[in-house]
């Protein structure tokens, strides 16, 4: 096995994990301008809940049930916690998502505990030897699933009426509202979609990491990725995540601990200096 291609593959996988989480961040930020700190906690809950369902139910039903619960969770959280803050400074909503993060972590500990369990292999887990590299199927499926999610969300944004409404809302809330787009519904839908994405991602990434309450750490690690790509660009979320993931894996492999750890942030700082709104972020034309 060559080492370099292996690093690239694992970097792409890391990028896929970051990518799905970044998509969640972007969806919510784009529509509501709230940065959702509890994103990683959604992922963690997704892993734990789908694990519990799969233990008692047939795989397909369990997955559907988990996704339904995920969507319901996004809906409830938006209605109960985030919606009452409309009209308040955005920074309050930021703090609210942090409070949510604490509550979700607490809920996970109450119902799941602090134990670690292997996630069920609900799809065949095997090793594909491609000559130069060997890819394990969770990695492959994870990458494929991320690509599929990305394409689906992209199409939804481009083609569907709701997606168009969401794009209009992202431009300007008041204008969208005056044009008859139900902005409130768009907000709710963004939260539901983001939670749903995390739960879909959880189905694939849980197999790699096992199921426990510490998975929320991934949410924090994906923050540089989403910023590199640009906070309000779907394309950017994926590209940024792939860039950050690959660079992180390569730096860890070749340059050592210190560099690998802060690589995402070095990339981030460089991007912020050169292209302040991210690689694909929308440039607001105004003097600062």
């Amino acid at each position: 096995m060559e080492v370099l291609p292996q690093f690239i593959v694992s970097g792409i996988f890391l990028g896929a994990v970051y990518g799905v989480i970044s998509l969640g961040y972007v969806l919510i930020y784009k529509a509501t301008h709230v940065f959702n700190f509890s994103q990683g906690y959604f992922l963690m809950l997704g892993v734990l809940l789908s694990f519990i369902f799969m233990e008692y139910l047939p795989v397909l039903i369990a997955i559907l049930l988990a996704l339904a619960v995920g969507a319901a969770m996004g809906f409830i959280i938006h209605r109960l916690a985030v919606r009452p803050l409309i009209g308040q400074p955005l920074i309050s909503a930021l703090l609210m998502t942090l409070g949510l993060a604490y509550a979700l972590q607490g809920l996970a500990i109450v119902f799941w505990g602090t134990k670690v369990r292997p996630y069920p292999h609900w799809f065949p887990v095997e090793e594909f030897d491609l000559g130069v590299i060997a890819i394990s199927s969770p990695v492959l499926w994870g990458i494929v699933a991320t690509a599929a999610i990305f394409v689906a969300v992209g199409l939804f944004y481009q083609r569907s009426k709701m997606g168009k409404g969401m794009r209009a809302t992202a431009e300007d809330h008041q204008v969208a509202q005056s044009l008859g787009i139900k902005v409130d519904r768009v907000f709710t839908f963004s939260w539901v979609l983001a939670a749903l994405l995390m739960f879909i991602g959880a189905l694939f990434f849980g197999v790699q990491g096992g199921a426990f309450h510490g998975l929320s750490e991934w949410g924090w690690k994906a923050i540089p990725a989403v910023l590199v790509g640009g906070l309000d660009s779907l394309k950017g979320a994926i590209v940024g995540a792939l860039l950050v993931g690959t660079l992180e894996a390569m730096a860890t492999g070749y340059l050592g601990v210190a560099i690998g750890n802060i690589m995402p942030f070095i990339v981030l700082l460089l991007v912020l200096i050169i292209k302040p709104y991210g690689i694909f972020g929308e440039v607001r034309i105004e003097r600062v």
């Binding site: 080492v3 292996q6 994990v17 790699q208 991934w218 894996a249 601990v257």
Partner: peptide, 21 residues
């Protein structure tokens, strides 16, 4: 070598690759 181990491992492949390297 001195390889970092993240607490929640997302990509075991790169760690293994580093060990192999």
């Amino acid at each position: 070598d001195d390889i970092p181990l993240p607490f929640a491992v997302a990509d075991p492949d790169s760690i293994v690759a580093a060990l192999v390297k």
